[in-house]
Amino acid sequence: MRLLKTAIHPSVNANDPRQFTRLTGRAIALNGTDILLMYTARYEDYSLPGGGIDEGESIEQGLIRELQEETGAQNIKILNEFGLYEEYRPWYKDDFAVIHIKSYCYYCSIDEKLGQAQLEHYEQQNGMTAKWVNIYDAIAHNERTLANSDKQGLSIIRETYLLKQIAEQLK
């Protein structure tokens, strides 16, 4: 899969041996210029649905599972690869200093109507909801959050970058 970007948080050393790698799958489901995204009220941002790959799963299997759980998506088909975004961030648990996140992004087709999501407890607490949103509105929203909010999480930089790259492909 083509590497889109490597982002290194300014407070970490990407070569620090006290790091672990987390593989994630992220779905790009489009309907014209609308894209299926997760809105997180806690951070006031939009992100691609998806998440961590469990042991024994392929990236594609984990992506399908996460997409179903987070959004209630039905009839999921992985169409093709979009790209890999990797990042190195600070980590403060389990004797690690750095987390190396590798986000594998895929175009997917799904039914427009979503079923019942099965969010994890922390996702519910953070106010996560699946929404079809105009991609340009989502980019503008995330950019406003980056400029004006002190509640933003570390993921918004990745998500805004990915949304802009996807929008470029729509042109």
Rank of each mutant, 00 (worst) to 15 (best):
E81Y: 06
T71L: 10
Q125V: 14
G50T: 07
E66D: 10
I78W: 05
C108P: 04
R18D: 12
P17Y: 05
P49I: 08
Y107W: 11
A14W: 03
G32Q: 04
S109K: 13
G52L: 07
I64G: 04
F96T: 05
L67M: 13
G50W: 05
C108Q: 03
N142Q: 09
K102A: 08
N15P: 01
D34R: 13
Q74N: 15
I135Y: 04
Y106G: 06
F96D: 08
G25R: 01
Y39A: 01
T40Q: 11
Y122Q: 13
Y39W: 10
K113V: 13
G72M: 10
I64K: 11
R22S: 13
Q125D: 13
R22P: 00
Q61P: 02
A27R: 01
N15G: 14
I64T: 08
G51T: 02
N134H: 14
N80S: 15
I76S: 12
G52P: 10
Q118F: 06
R18G: 03
Y46E: 03
D54A: 13
D137W: 00
D111W: 02
A117K: 14
E55W: 05
D137L: 02
Y46N: 03
Y88S: 03
E123Y: 06
Y136V: 02
R89L: 15
Y136F: 11
S58K: 08
T21E: 14
Q74L: 12
Y107R: 09
F82K: 10
Y107G: 09
N134Y: 01
D54Y: 07
A41R: 15
L114C: 12
A41M: 12
T24P: 00
R65P: 11
K131Y: 02
Y85P: 00
C108N: 04
D111R: 07
A138W: 01
W91Q: 09
T40E: 14
Q125A: 14
K131H: 14
Q19K: 08
D94C: 00
P90C: 07
W91Y: 15
I139P: 01
Q61S: 14
V12M: 03
Q124W: 02
W91T: 00
